[in-house]
């Protein structure tokens, strides 16, 4: 416990906790509609696109690679989410195609750049390594602002997001501009995924999106309760995951995901024990 208090003296530890909690919160809130629309793996797909963009930005020696990563990832999100329904290529195939292409292409490009530690950079991006513990103040502020924006948008458009997720046809028939809301969901997803890459890395992002939502759905039967529980679940898992990893010396990303999996197992068991509740 004393060790923990000592660690908490460091600003970078406090930053990690703040950012980790905010990102987990945003991912889980968005996870509910994404999982219900059967886009669970979008976290993976888009993070690979973001990885590809990062590689290009590195090769071009851009001073701030966010300038390239954000827009490219947003475009990727729009392509994936909007071609998901009513097209010749179905959602999962599109995600697979774009994601794998971006990952391969990105890594190829990196080989032509002259970064000194290719393996390390790639590893950091894919698994997060300790990047959440090496954030600057500017990074933290950026994250706080974007998370607050996402949260505000989510609250403002909560009912509309529900309508578009539950029954897009009905929503459109009653006059709602579903295109606009699908676009909104796509953009927010892209923003969160780019931010979340810092926390758990590309390969583990899907966990932040999926586990809280699915755990909540095992226990609750009301969309609002599912959403709220999802958020609480994600925050607790992220917080404890970070604390455990700094105390035990384990990689941050995998630890957070590990906690998520354990917590999911608990929720699943409780759900099973309750049986088929009315």
């Amino acid at each position: 416990m004393d060790k923990l208090a000592e660690y908490l003296q460091y600003p970078f530890v406090r930053y990690a906790l703040i950012v980790g909690v905010l990102i987990a919160l945003c991912s889980s809130l968005l996870g509910v509609p994404l999982v219900l629309k059967r886009f669970s793996f979008i976290g993976d797909g888009l993070s690979h696109v973001a990885f590809g963009a990062m590689c290009i930005a590195t090769v071009l020696k851009l001073s701030n690679n966010m300038l390239l990563i954000m827009p490219v990832t947003i475009i990727g999100a729009v392509l994936i989410l909007r071609t998901g329904t009513n097209t010749k290529i179905k959602g999962d195939a599109i995600i697979a195609m774009i994601s794998v292409a971006a990952l391969a292409f990105g890594y190829l490009i990196m080989n032509f750049s002259n970064t000194p530690n290719l393996a390390g950079d790639v590893c950091t991006t894919l698994f997060g390594s300790t990047s959440i513990l090496t954030l600057s103040r500017a990074d933290v502020w950026l994250c706080i602002i974007m998370s607050v924006l996402v949260l505000v948008i989510f609250v403002l458009f909560y009912h509309r997001i529900f309508a578009v997720t539950f029954d897009e046809n009905f929503a459109r028939a009653t006059g709602m501009d579903t295109e606009k809301y699908n676009l909104l969901i796509a953009i927010i997803t892209a923003v969160i995924i780019v931010l979340a890459m810092n926390l758990v890395g590309s390969l583990l992002i899907s966990a932040l999106i999926i586990f809280p939502a699915i755990s909540a759905m095992r226990l609750f039967h009301n969309y609002f309760k599912v959403t709220v529980f999802s958020a609480i679940f994600a925050v607790i898992c992220a917080f404890s995951g970070i604390i455990i990893s700094i105390l035990a010396g384990t990689p941050v990303g995998s630890t957070i995901v590990g906690v998520n999996v354990l917590a999911f197992a608990v929720c699943w068991s409780i759900g099973k024990l309750r049986g088929t509740a009315a």
């Binding site: 060790k3 660690y7 460091y10 600003p11 300790t130 513990l133 090496t134 990893s245 700094i246 105390l247």
Partner: peptide
């Protein structure tokens, strides 16, 4: 006395 996770981040800091 630091865990490996902290050690790395402390040195970076």
């Amino acid at each position: 006395q630091s865990s490996e996770t902290m050690l790395y981040s402390e040195v970076i800091d």
